[in-house]
Simulated scan of single mutants.
Amino acid sequence: MEAEKLLLLFSLIMLHFSSSTSRDSLKTNQTSKEGFFSPGSFSNRYLGIWYHKIPEQTVVWVAKTNDPIIGSSGFLFTNQYGNLVLHGKDDQKLPVWSTNVSVEENDTCAAQLLDSGNLILVRKRSRKTVWQSFDYPTNILLPGMKLVLDRKLGIDRFLTSWRSAEDPGFRDFSVRINPNGSPQFFFYNGKKPISRSPPWPWRSQMDLYKSTFVNDPDEKYFVYTVPDDSYLLRIIVDHPGLGLCGADSTCELTNHNRFGCACLPGFEPKYPKEWSTRDGSGGCVRKRLQTSLLCQHGEGFVKIENYSLPDTSSAA
């Protein structure tokens, strides 16, 4: 299965484009109580970014997800050092989260939320971006946001699932680049790989967006863009943590409303009960009862599409 389909498995949502917020900037010494949300029926509040003018609130980024703000207090502040600081209480004594960047003396910064969903901190003098939320992905990859593995600089940016639909705290499920052998995307439960993409290079089969993968000795990254910006796509690692179509199966994920796993000819689901709930990670096994369907007389070749090549992470 192609790498794009591995990512799209975790949920593909197409939304009409709209601007992100009415107040899209925050200057030095300004405070804001906007940008907070409470997931589901929980009263805990988080600083986040979500689509604007969408009937159902769709959060695409959360700051400091393991430390919610209790009650109705909490505000975002751009301090004198040019950093965004999140306070959980009005007394400003115990910051919950900060961008924690260094700014040159006598310079100031302003925060701005771009229509792409990227929250940036910009130096006023040089107009240089010194911090951006795109460098700190949570469970969602937006167009223009990179999944990066740079061993030289010690950078590893990957997606991590929420604990549940109502708790954005980090869970063990993640999607990240495995650089061993020919690079692949791996879906992990903790340190245990659940599923993977085929080895690089990949052949793009998706028309919804354009993807790029850079495979340099020091840096490897994946990024995708929407050609005409007429809609927004989000790629999400969902909290149930379901894996991909397992061994001896094919996967066709062009339609996120349809279960895309199918067994190869002569095979059947290894775990039919899980298969019926759209979990194909257990894969398929040779048919045990209807052996007449296996190749015997008149043997030949069957064309198989969307089949994953062997794992190369242990290859020499």
Results as ranks from 00 to 15, higher is better:
residue 308 S to Q: 10
residue 278 R to D: 14
residue 21 T to C: 04
residue 13 I to D: 12
residue 23 R to M: 10
residue 35 G to H: 09
residue 267 F to L: 10
residue 291 T to Q: 12
residue 162 W to M: 09
residue 258 R to L: 13
residue 282 G to Q: 11
residue 188 Y to N: 10
residue 141 L to V: 02
residue 3 A to K: 01
residue 243 G to A: 07
residue 62 V to R: 00
residue 144 G to C: 06
residue 208 L to R: 08
residue 33 K to E: 10
residue 230 S to C: 04
residue 293 L to G: 03
residue 244 L to V: 06
residue 226 V to P: 03
residue 35 G to R: 02
residue 304 I to D: 09
residue 81 Y to H: 12
residue 154 G to E: 10
residue 239 H to Q: 13
residue 185 F to Q: 03
residue 239 H to W: 15
residue 110 A to R: 15
residue 222 F to L: 11
residue 31 T to S: 15
residue 138 T to M: 06
residue 134 F to A: 04
residue 138 T to F: 00
residue 166 E to L: 01
residue 240 P to Q: 08
residue 276 S to C: 05
residue 66 N to I: 07
residue 46 Y to F: 15
residue 57 Q to H: 01
residue 254 T to W: 12
residue 186 F to L: 07
residue 41 S to C: 00
residue 18 S to V: 06
residue 16 H to A: 08
residue 307 Y to L: 13
residue 89 K to S: 14
residue 200 W to F: 14
residue 207 D to Q: 10
residue 167 D to Y: 05
residue 60 V to Y: 05
residue 136 Y to P: 01
residue 73 S to N: 14
residue 82 G to M: 01
residue 1 M to K: 02
residue 17 F to N: 11
residue 14 M to N: 14
residue 241 G to K: 13
residue 268 E to C: 06
residue 271 Y to F: 10
residue 216 D to R: 01
residue 191 K to C: 00
residue 268 E to V: 14
residue 234 R to D: 09
residue 154 G to I: 03
residue 49 I to F: 04
residue 75 F to L: 14
residue 125 R to P: 01
residue 67 D to H: 01
residue 257 N to C: 09
residue 152 K to S: 15
residue 32 S to K: 07
residue 40 G to K: 13
residue 46 Y to R: 06
residue 158 F to K: 08
residue 148 V to S: 08
residue 196 R to K: 04
residue 302 V to N: 06
residue 216 D to A: 08
residue 298 G to D: 13
residue 263 C to A: 09
residue 12 L to P: 00
residue 82 G to L: 02
residue 38 S to H: 01
residue 158 F to S: 07
residue 195 S to G: 12
residue 118 N to V: 04
residue 1 M to L: 04
residue 58 T to F: 08
residue 115 D to V: 00
residue 8 L to D: 05
residue 198 P to I: 12
residue 225 T to I: 12
residue 87 H to D: 04
residue 263 C to M: 07
residue 302 V to A: 11
residue 104 E to C: 01
residue 222 F to G: 03
residue 139 N to M: 00
residue 214 V to T: 13
residue 120 I to W: 04
residue 193 P to N: 05
residue 142 L to M: 10
residue 107 D to Q: 15
residue 145 M to T: 13
residue 79 N to F: 00
residue 109 C to K: 09
residue 62 V to P: 02
residue 6 L to I: 04
residue 63 A to G: 05
residue 87 H to W: 15
residue 43 S to A: 08
residue 224 Y to I: 08
residue 171 R to F: 13
residue 124 K to W: 12
residue 288 R to N: 06
residue 146 K to F: 03
residue 151 R to A: 11
residue 159 L to A: 08
residue 11 S to Y: 10
residue 211 S to Q: 09
